[in-house]
Amino acid sequence: MLRGFATISYYADDLDAARDWYTTLVGIEPYYVVPGYIEFRVGDDEHELGIIDGRYRPPMPDGPAGAVMQWAVDDVDRSLATLLERGARGRTLAATAR
């Protein structure tokens, strides 16, 4: 489903649950696991997707904040449906075919 990106890390309040969720989503086990951090190599170019324990999250500003990521996918509609079925949410879910 997901084909690639540069490098990104997300914070998770429940690192074990995040590991399970992303393992199912990307279809592979993380290749690097240490206390407080896991990392996957995703897509054709094995880009890095890191998940950091939320205890290490820096102070956040009031109001909207977060990462903006554009994913390369094979099927936009199927990918969006899969993410929504797995509980993904956000203010805007948009996709651009290339």
Rank of each mutant, 00 (worst) to 15 (best):
G27L: 04
L93Y: 08
T82M: 10
V26I: 13
P61A: 06
L80W: 02
R3T: 03
I51T: 00
E48K: 08
V34M: 10
I28Q: 13
T82L: 15
P64Y: 07
V76T: 12
P35H: 04
D44I: 04
D16I: 02
R57S: 11
E85R: 10
D74P: 06
Y56D: 12
Y56I: 02
D45S: 12
D53P: 00
A17M: 07
D44A: 13
P30L: 07
I51N: 00
A94Q: 12
E29C: 01
V34H: 10
G4S: 05
G36Q: 02
G54F: 05
E29L: 08
D20E: 13
R57A: 13
G36D: 03
P64T: 07
A6L: 11
R57N: 07
E48S: 14
T23E: 03
L93G: 07
A95W: 08
S79V: 14
V42D: 03
V42P: 01
R86Q: 15
G43E: 04
L80V: 15
D45M: 06
G87T: 07
D13E: 13
R41K: 12
L84Y: 08
L25R: 06
G54N: 10
R78Q: 13
P30W: 11
P61S: 00
V26P: 01
P58A: 12
I52G: 01
G43Q: 05
E39G: 14
Y37C: 00
T7P: 01
P64C: 02
P64N: 09
I38C: 06
A97R: 15
E46R: 12
T23N: 02
R19Y: 02
E29Y: 07
D53N: 09
D45H: 14
V76K: 12
V33K: 14
P30I: 11
